[in-house]
């Protein structure tokens, strides 16, 4: 039945060709996320054994990788890399927002800064959970995405500062009171624990594991998403771009197969590592 086959082929090609892809993240932003999650996994994997040093798996893991010396080395290595990434990001924001006076960095619908719509969206979203209202029309960055961003931002400042204070304690002791050296460990470990628990449970589910994105949202790896996904997940941004006639400018190429496959493997590994660490953390935390 050549006709049918051709027809099927043709329709598939047509359907395929129709699907448009839109740019969401730049290459630099995707790399930033890659560096962020790699170093974060490294920091979590090496930080947790220190936090729960009494637990069996922590000791096994530590001796497996060469003891505490190896653990602290990788912890510090990841910390330095993440600090550099953080500083590059801050410099980038500063250049775009302050030096180049780019609009929409610190306010507006494309900004990471929370606004009144986010509050309305939060309550609207929860009403929708309970079937009490329609699903809100999210913009470029939804309220939980902004929360993730600022949680990481604040976390890096707090965890980073307290970490460096421990690393270079005699130096920090020149201008910090003695009790602050006690406090930094409490802050570092509690905030680190919060970050780990939050990322490996809330961020994972909100962004990657929820039914709409399961098993992971590929947009952070490929930088682009299909028109259907765009419309569904961020209807407000889509219609705004459409109304302003800027939609075409965002059209991008379909991601290469190798990129999709490669990042899917990397993403799956990252999520699995995170879930294992989450399980270990919870088991150690509740046994404490």
């Amino acid at each position: 039945m050549p006709d049918l086959e051709q027809a099927a082929d043709g329709s598939r090609m047509q359907g395929h060709g129709k699907e448009r892809f839109f740019m969401r993240f730049t290459r630099a932003q995707r790399y930033l996320h890659a560096v962020l999650f790699t170093t974060f996994l490294g920091l979590a994997a090496t930080g947790l054994p220190m936090r729960f040093s009494e637990s069996y798996w922590a000791r096994k893991f530590a001796s497996g990788v060469g003891g505490f010396g190896a653990i602290i080395f990788f912890h510090k290595l990841c910390a330095v890399v993440l600090t550099l990434a953080f500083l590059i990001h801050v410099k980038d924001i500063f250049t775009r927002g302050v030096v180049n006076r780019e609009k929409g960095i610190f306010w507006g619908s494309n900004s990471m800064v929370a606004n009144w719509k986010d509050v309305k969206d939060l309550f609207g979203h929860m009403r929708w959970f309970l079937g009490l209202g329609p699903k809100p029309h999210f913009g470029r960055f939804a309220y939980w995405e902004k929360f993730d961003y600022w949680a990481v931002f604040w976390g890096m400042i707090v965890i980073g500062f307290s970490g460096y204070a421990m690393w270079f304690a005699p130096f920090f002791a020149r201008f910090l009171p003695g009790w602050a050296l006690n406090a930094v460990l409490v802050i570092h470990s509690e905030e680190g624990l919060l970050a780990i628990l939050f990322i490996f449970s809330i961020h994972f589910v909100n962004t990657h594991l929820r039914p709409d994105s399961f098993p992971m949202d590929m947009v952070i790896f490929t930088g682009v998403e299909s028109e259907e996904e765009f419309k569904k997940k961020r209807p407000e941004e889509y219609s705004k771009l459409e109304n302003e006639g800027k939609l075409e400018a965002r059209i991008s190429e379909e991601p290469a197969t190798w990129l999709v496959n490669f990042t899917r493997v990397v993403g799956t590994i990252a999520i699995l590592i995170g879930l294992v660490l989450l399980a270990l953390t919870l088991s150690a935390y509740f046994r404490e």
Partner: peptide
């Protein structure tokens, strides 16, 4: 720090579980 941890997680765990149920 403990309140921050407990508060953040409590809110988001409830939030995310409800979301999961609704979207499924």
């Amino acid at each position: 720090m403990n309140l921050l941890l407990a508060g953040t997680l409590t809110f988001f765990v409830i939030h995310t579980i409800l979301w999961l149920i609704r979207s499924r």
